[in-house]
Each structure stands twice: as C-alpha cells, then as structure tokens.
Design a protein around this nucleic acid. Structure first.
Lengths: 209, 209
DNA sequence: CCCCTTACTGTCCTTAAGTACAATGCCGTT
DNA sequence: AACGGCATTGTACTTAAGGACAGTAAGGGG
C-alpha cells in the first residue's frame, strides 16, 4: 500500500488502479487519521471542488505526517500550484494524468524530487528570479560572514531565538550575541527581524539604503 | 554512457564512477561540441571557481542541445540555484553529494522531475508566492486579523519596530503591543521575527506545527 | 438597551535582545 | 615570534519586547 488517493469521488479509480495495481487505496475526503495506518508513501490529493484553505490545510496535515503529497487538479493554475507546493506538496499534476505519467511522478517524488507541469517550471523560475532582487551577487553580502556567523544568521532566518541557536550550536547564549552584533554590522541591519528578512531577500525599511 | 560530468578537475571522479559504474565520462571545462557525440542523457556541471555568466552560458548551451543539466556546486546559494534552474537546469545539488544521492537525482531528473536541495524548495515556493499577485486567499490566515491588526502585522513584516509602527499609525506603543499579542495568538507565532517570516510565507521552526 | 467586537490606553513586571569593554585560546600568515 | 582574524565567554548595563491585569470608548446587532 504505497499510494493513497484522496478524492471526493472515485471516478478515476480505474485509472489509478491501472497505474499502481494492487498498491493503492482510495479514500473520500475526510480526516487523515487512518493514513497513519495506511503506510502510504505518497498521498495524492484531488482538489476538485474543494475550498482552497481547507484543502491546503489537509495538505499541510499530510505533509506534517511525513507523507509526500502530490496535488491533482482538474484546472491547473499557476498561483494554485505555488500555494500547494509552498504548503509542502512535492507534486502538482493534472487530475486526469495518464497512468504512465502517474508512475513517472511517483518515481520522481519517491526519490526526493519535485514534479510539476513543465510550463509551470519555467514560470516558477522566471518569477523567482524576479523575486530575488539580487541580480548579480548572491543573497545579501553573505560572503562577508564567517562560517560560524553564517550558521547563526541562517538560524535567525528561520525564526530561532538566541537560546535555541546557542543550544543548537552548543555554545553560550553570550557567544551567539557576539556573533549577532558582528552580523548586524556586516549586513547593515539593526536587529534580528531585519536580519531574518534580509536573509530571505525581503526588503525592509532599512534595507532601502 | 549516460552520465557526463563536466568539471575543472577530476578530484571527485572516483565518487562519480562509484555512482554510475561504467556509464560516465568526465570532461574538462571546454566546448560542448563533443557532447552531441557522447549521447549523454544527463550532464552534470560543476560550477566551482567558474564565472557565473560563463557557467550559465554553458548550461544554456547544454540545455539547448536537449540534455538534462544538473548543476553541482561546492557552495549552494539560493540566488545561484534559481539562476541555474531558470537557465534550464533541472537539478541543483551539492558538489560532494554521495553516490547514492547522485543516483537518486539522476532518477528524478530522468523522469522529468526537478531536484534541488530541500531547503531551497521551500524558499523557492515562498518567493514565488510573493511574486504572484496572490489572487484569492492570502498567505497565512490573515483573514482572521482585523483591519488594524493587519496594518500592524504588515509593518512588522517589513522590519518595523513597535515605536515606528506606533508613530506611523499615530497610536501609542502600548497599543501596538496590544495588537501584537493578539496577532501572535491568532497566527500561532511566538514573536515578531516569526510573524515577519510568516507574513512573507517563509516557514519557521514553529510554523511546522 | 445590552452585549460583543474593535480600538485604544495605562501601570507593572519579566525576560529577551543588544551593546560596551574585556579577555583567552587557536590558527595561519608574515 | 609577532600579528590579525576567528571563536569563545565573562560581567554589567540599557532598552525593546511581550505578558498580566485592567479600564475606557465607539459602533453594530439582537
């Protein structure tokens, strides 16, 4: 039981069974508790007629449980795809994908890859480039940071507190602060919030310099 | 001969041969004409010490020839990854990836998938979300926030301090704090750093919940 | 009119954050 | 050997943040 399809109806069940003979289950939309028992590796979720927020919550839940989630949609949309993937899904395909296609996707996803409609890949990359204000150089001037400082900065970029960083790196909170002060100066930010944003290429009031 | 490694030196050749016994070639950096003959399916390109523009030109050329290009780098960087992928590469991994890892990547790429460092996937999607004019649903559950709270949250998302927000909205710093407390609770974050990141669709340690 | 939500503010108080001034040990270069 | 960069930690101090507890005022709906 490696494939689990979650959909409102089973119209396409035949197709799915053809793609993964004897290795799938089909569930109606509902709570995901039984999934834990199902030992499914990949959860295919059909968003047909689902409320966006509800659906994404379901995706998040499944992802949180450690499953690889592939979203299937009858009407592919760019924004929809990005929302799904940013929620943790690792695949975004057409609901009516052919069995062979489904197997390809399963293969990719099982091995840590990301699968989405080819057109979307291009779009995604183009958009990302636009979103990354740094045309030539890397993110900020992270090159100026020492390895250790970078480790601290990265953790701040993920919302960690000084204490957490200290425990994580097995050093004193005082030392973390020392690194922080230097990082602030080097990157030209004034506090951890701006650092976190800068690390994620997000402009701040101060970054405007 | 399905794997072709293009690098400046062959230090890691042993590793690559272990990953793809008898099915690879290693070439020095140079013109790609011989590639056409090589019948390689996947071209792995090491960008160590290469000029960014030059390197990307090489990637573009290989992509244009119909090869799946995987970029290998000793120093993974977000902007670098996006540039590589938007140029047409379908993989972005660490130069020193283990043989098993390389095989996984090859498998993913061969089947039309996209492979990149897990951290980067998250970042990529978050960035895209910001670039896309998020049509209907906002990022988090911003719908739960009152208009005023949203104003405060948006300013925090740009790195503003409580005082700045207070002056900006012409209210007391105390009031800002009051809003903040409610925002934290509503969005399930613990401090302004995580709020700032959440507002920008960037996952944090706490967001995982 | 009463209730609830939203917005706003006050006073304490605790703690996280950040700075100032040092100091020690390691390592690589000159 | 001397010097500088890096990582580490200490004490002490200042300030921003955030929570606890409480209170006022406006506005919409039952």
């Amino acid at each position: 039981m490696r494939q689990l399809f979650v959909a409102r109806d089973g119209k396409l069940r035949g197709r799915w069974e053809k793609a993964f003979p004897g290795a799938l289950a089909v569930r109606q939309v509902g709570d995901l508790a039984p999934l834990v028992v199902a030992e499914a590796q990949i959860v295919w979720m059909d968003n047909t007629g689902r409320d966006s927020a509800d659906f994404l919550a379901g995706v998040r839940e499944a992802v949180g449980c450690g499953y690889r989630v592939v979203v299937m949609t009858p009407t592919p949309s760019e924004a929809d795809a990005f929302r799904a993937l940013s929620t943790g899904a690792v695949g975004y395909c057409h609901l009516e994908s052919a069995p062979e296609q489904l197997r390809e996707i399963a293969l990719v996803v099982e091995h840590g890859g990301l699968w989405m409609l080819p057109e979307l890949v291009q779009r995604l990359m183009a958009l990302s480039l636009r979103a990354v204000p740094t045309p030539a150089a890397g993110p900020p001037q992270l090159n100026d940071l020492t390895p250790r400082e970078l480790m601290v900065a990265e953790r701040v970029a993920h919302g960690a507190s000084n204490r957490e960083i200290a425990e994580d790196l097995d050093i004193t909170e005082r030392t973390v602060k020392a690194h922080m002060s230097i990082i602030f100066e080097k990157l030209g930010v004034r506090d951890r919030v701006q650092l976190a944003l800068a690390m994620n290429n997000i402009p701040t009031y101060a970054t405007v310099n």
